[in-house]
Each structure stands twice: as structure tokens, then as C-alpha cells.
């Protein structure tokens, strides 16, 4: 337990000072501030931010995470040469990577809203946005950790990271649309819901969009989702699926880390 915190503390201290993470925070700060100024409406800003968060957060988490861990190779060796347990070291490394990214994201996106001041409903949506970003950072930095531990070659590792991101954003959407178009004669609500659970970005997207009035425009499927997410069961399944997207890669990564030869 202690080792987890000690590793986390120093790694997070290094990551927080990284120019890339500072740039990441500034990016979200500028985008949010810009949208707030141009639209003048916190609700519209938040609706636009949904797409930005769903696109940028997974990309940054998986790419920054993979690159950071490849660069930390000798640092990890130094830690493992001390009287520490690998399991705890791994947990410390993962949290020391994910938490600074969450912090940079939350500060960048939240700060402009604080400056401008927003009303209660906008607060709720802001919290939902921050939660979605946090969970996505958790999932994608866990995938990044898994890749960096499993793959010796950093170029292949980085390639895998980008491929995973492309799969879950671009390719996945195309695939779902294709299936829906081809099978349009069949009832697909359940299948659509199942496909959605297979992609953390998609769960986050639907959960976020349902908070906006626009959900009505999602038509029949929107109604299906609204019914599903509105119910206690649906919400529980969605949360469980998101948690599994964090816990699964973390567990696989830990297993690989414990057996890895440095």
C-alpha cells in the first residue's frame, strides 16, 4: 500500500511538470474559453465540448501514456531494484500516470466555467463531462500501460496505441453504421446496446448526449437508449461496463508486469 503511494507521488510530480500535460490543460482551457465567448451560452458550449472530449481525451491518454511509459523504462528499473513489490509498483505507476492527466483535463475544462459563472443545470452537465473525461482517461491510460508493458518495441507499441484509438473511434462507428444499415429490417435495439458496451467512448457519448435536449433528435434509438439509461438496470450496466474497461486492462497489465523481464 505504501509503495503504491510513494511511486505515485514521485511519478505524478514528474508528469505534472511535463510540457505536454501543461499544453493539454491549456488546450482545453482555450477551447472552452473560446466556445464560451463565441456562443455565450454554457449549455451550447458543453454540447460542443462533448465531441471534443470524446475525441481528444482517449487519444491523448493512450498516446501520452504509451510514450511516457516507454521513456520511463529506466526509471521503472530503478524502482524495481529497490525493495518493492511489483504489484504495488505497477499500481503506483498507473495512478501516477492517470491522475495527472485527469488533473490537467479537469483544470483546463473546468476553469473557464468557473470564471464565467454558471447556473445549476450547467453545473450538473459540467460534472458529467468531467466524470466522462475521468473515466475515459482511466480506461485509455490503462490500455496504454498494458501496451507499454506487453510490447518491447516502442514503435510497435505506439502504433498499437494509435490503432486501438482508431478502432474505437473511426472504425467502430463505421462498423456500427454498416451493421445497422444492412440489418435495418430487423429489430436491433438489444444488439445496438450490446455493441455500445463494447466501446467505452460510445458509452460515454450516449450517457452524455442524453443529458441534452438533443437526445430527442436521436429518434427511435435515442428513445431506446433513454429508456435503457433511465432505468436503474441500464445505468448500472453502463457504469459496470465502463469500470470493466478500466479494471480489465489494469488487471491484464499487472499480470504482464509481474512476469516481465526488464
Amino acid at each position: 500500500m505504501n509503495t503504491i503511494f510513494k511511486v505515485l507521488k514521485y511519478q505524478a510530480r514528474d508528469a505534472v511538470r511535463s510540457r505536454w500535460l501543461i499544453g493539454y490543460a491549456i488546450f482545453f482551457g482555450l477551447v472552452t474559453e473560446g466556445l464560451l465567448r463565441f456562443s455565450g451560452d454554457p449549455a451550447k458550449t458543453q454540447l460542443s465540448l462533448v465531441s471534443v472530449v470524446l475525441f481528444v481525451v482517449p487519444l491523448v491518454a493512450i498516446v501520452f501514456g504509451t510514450v511516457y511509459l516507454y521513456n520511463a523504462r529506466e526509471f521503472i528499473e530503478l524502482i524495481l531494484a529497490q525493495p518493492v513489490r511489483r504489484r504495488q509498483t505497477y499500481t503506483g505507476l498507473y495512478l501516477g500516470l492517470a491522475l495527472p492527466m485527469v488533473l490537467a483535463f479537469a483544470v483546463g475544462l473546468g476553469f473557464p466555467f468557473l470564471l464565467h459563472g454558471i447556473d445549476a443545470p450547467a453545473w450538473n452537465t459540467l460534472v458529467a463531462l468531467l466524470l466522462a473525461g475521468t473515466v475515459l482517461t482511466g480506461a485509455f491510460s490503462a490500455i496504454a500501460t498494458l501496451i507499454a508493458v506487453r510490447c518491447e518495441d516502442r514503435l510497435r507499441g505506439l502504433g498499437t496505441a494509435i490503432a486501438v484509438w482508431l478502432m474505437l473511434t473511426v472504425v467502430y462507428d463505421g462498423l456500427v453504421l454498416f451493421i445497422l444499415a444492412v440489418m435495418s429490417d430487423y429489430p436491433l435495439e438489444k444488439a445496438t446496446l450490446a455493441m455500445m458496451m463494447a466501446n467505452p467512448i460510445d458509452i460515454a457519448r450516449v450517457a452524455l448526449l442524453l443529458r441534452f435536449d438533443g437526445a430527442a433528435m436521436m429518434g427511435y434509438t435515442g428513445a431506446v437508449f433513454l429508456k435503457f439509461f433511465g432505468g436503474a438496470w441500464g445505468a448500472a450496466i453502463a457504469i459496470t461496463a465502463l469500470m470493466a474497461w478500466i479494471a480489465g486492462p489494469v488487471a491484464l497489465g499487472m499480470r504482464a508486469f509481474q512476469r516481465k523481464d526488464f
Partner: peptide, 26 residues
């Protein structure tokens, strides 16, 4: 242990690295 390649986290200072080792070793 003195590893062959001395590559450490770029944004930490030597003093912080030493403090970390002290922490880890108890």
C-alpha cells in the same frame, strides 16, 4: 544498483530522486 544507462524522469531533480529512494527503502 548502478544501471548502465542513467536515464531518469526529466522533470524531477536529483534531490527528489534521492528522496524517492529513501522513501522506498524506508
Amino acid at each position: 544498483y548502478m544501471p548502465q544507462i542513467a536515464r531518469f524522469p526529466e522533470n524531477l531533480t536529483g534531490a527528489e530522486l534521492i528522496r524517492m529512494l529513501k522513501d522506498l527503502r524506508g
